[in-house]
Amino acid sequence: MRGYGQYCPIARASEVFAERWTPLIVRNMALGCETFSDILRGAPGLSRTLLAARLRELQRHGLLSRDQGPGHSVRYHLTEAGTDLWQVCLALGAWGVRWLELAPEHLDPYPVLWAMCRSADPAALPDRRVVVRLDFPALRPPTRFWLLYEHGDAEVCVHSPGEEDLVVVADPAAFTRWHMGWTTWAQAVRAGHIAVTGPCDLVHAFPTWNPHSRFADVRPEPHVLAAVPASEPVRRPADTAGPKTA
């Protein structure tokens, strides 16, 4: 990015922060991503070449450290300056929630699922392996993901990790609204925008495993809520084992 050539701290900081993908890289690292692959996984659309370039720039500006781990592995960590920049990201996110409308192109469920997994509280997760399939039939083409809960960890998968314990069918707008704290899980289910099938104990527990967005306490302006895409009804899944429940 070409510099502004100004003394102004806003101008000088923008030369670093306003580079495409940089705020998302800082976000991913603040959420615990330490390896190149983990950072990349949390930024769909970012190329490996561009990520490598951005990491070099962030290291040059003193925002991250690059440490050699076991077996020649490399890990990245935010420095004090990088952690301070994360506070700027949080302020920007709060501003975005309050003032920017949510459009259909923003409803990709993968970033929601990825954020849920990165922010999950290990103490709240099931004490055994659980696989949850999530279908979003309103997307074109229809989109499917899996959540794997195992050993106090949560992971979003694009391929089936094994036998499914729960199946969730959700409208992406409703799922995003729930994640943002704009509606409750029970309200979305009652409205027919989310349907869950599987053993009763897992059906009731599933929403408690997944945290809301860290911006859920920020109230959007009325015009933002009014512009949220409408949700579509979904059909209850019928191809999973175990007792069925509403």
Rank of each mutant, 00 (worst) to 15 (best):
L58W: 08
H77R: 14
R56S: 07
L40K: 08
Q68E: 09
P70H: 11
A94Y: 07
L58Y: 14
L90R: 14
E34N: 04
L40F: 00
L55K: 04
H61R: 14
R56P: 00
G71W: 02
A43P: 01
H61W: 13
D38C: 01
L102E: 12
G96W: 00
L90F: 03
Q68C: 08
H72F: 12
A52V: 02
E101D: 08
T35K: 10
L46G: 00
T83W: 15
A81S: 10
R54F: 02
R66V: 07
E57R: 15
L102P: 05
R48K: 15
L55I: 04
E34P: 00
T49A: 13
L46A: 02
S73A: 06
R41H: 08
A81Y: 11
P44L: 03
R66D: 01
W86K: 07
G96Y: 01
V74Y: 09
G93N: 13
D38V: 02
A81P: 06
D84S: 03
D67T: 11
Q59L: 00
A52K: 14
S47K: 06
L50K: 11
E80L: 12
D84I: 06
L46R: 03
G45A: 08
W99C: 01
V97P: 03
H77M: 01
H77E: 10
R60E: 06
A53G: 09
T79W: 12
A53K: 14
L40I: 02
W95H: 13
G62D: 09
R54L: 06
I39Q: 08
G69P: 01
L46D: 01
G42K: 06
L58H: 08
A94H: 13
V97Y: 09
R98S: 07
R41E: 14
Q87Y: 08
G82Y: 12
L40A: 03
L55E: 03
G69H: 01
R56Q: 05
L102D: 10
H61G: 07
R66M: 09
R56W: 02
T83H: 15
H61K: 12
L102A: 07
L40M: 04
H77Q: 10
L102K: 06
W86L: 07
R98A: 13
G69W: 03
E80Y: 08
Q87M: 05
P70K: 11
P70Y: 11
R56I: 00
E34I: 00
H72W: 09
R56M: 00
G45E: 04
Y76W: 09
L90M: 11
S47M: 01
Q59Y: 04
A81F: 09
D84M: 12
A43R: 11
R41L: 08
L78I: 03
E101Y: 02
